[in-house]
Amino acid sequence: MVLHRAARARLAPFGAAVLVAAVLVALGAPLLAPYDPLEQNLGLALARPGRAHLLGTDNIGRDVMSRVIWGTRVSLVAGFASVAVAAVAGSLLGVLAGYAGGRADGLVMRAMDAVLSFPPLVLALALGAVLGAGLGGVLIALGVVYTPTFARLMRGQVLAITAREYVDAARALGAPGWRIAWHHVLPNAAPPIVVQASLSVAFAILAEASLSFLGLGIQPPGASWGSMINAGRGYLQQAPWIVFGPGAALFVTVVGLNFVGDAIRDALDPRL
């Protein structure tokens, strides 16, 4: 266990470096991208990676590297925003269920069970489809998919914390319910939510890439890693770099975020 933790700790700086690099690339995309990600140059279509185009060009001559750099924004926004939506919505529902108890609890938690009755990607696909293609639809769809995990976690926390003596003491002193929830329950329930959120971001980025790959999410000609990989799969024989550039970016980001998530979990929850 100690060795395992040490090995993980060794990997955490790598994860942190990947995360910082990804955030910097996303923020600095206009400065870092060597070309306009949408600029077509049919004369240079399917150019091999070289000095002018480090990761080559795609089938209509757009610079793959510039598109990967701009795609970083989409991936990070999708990953962090959808998890933030889920964490806020799930926490509110969990507090409501745990605090109100009775019928409200039953209804909220059965609704969460119902959401969990769908395979996540299939539900996200269906929701993305009815909400319409685009980043907004994908964010809401992924937010809905991840909400039950946070609701269950928060409800459990609320039930455990409200049974503590300091909450009894606050009640005896006449503190109103909202005050107890805000000052006692939420701060104590936060660490597991933060851990779950940090572990979920990597999966949300993968899910956004999967939906973009299937054609939901950012629409052409906009650049996202998933849609670039899908567009490149027809050229696997002549120009595999169209797939490998965004593929490598996606893989490294997800691995890095996994390490960061593990490290945050180890730091905040020593029991695991």
């Binding site: 990597a202 993968l206 890439a209 999967s210 790959f213 998933g226 990989i229 899908n230 799969r233 696997l236 797939v243 593929g247 996606l250 893989f251 997800v254 691995v255 996994n258």
Partner: peptide
């Protein structure tokens, strides 16, 4: 960590 669509394309 490997997205399955990427793995599929690598295998192809």
């Amino acid at each position: 960590c490997m997205p399955n669509f990427l793995l599929a394309l690598l295998l192809i």
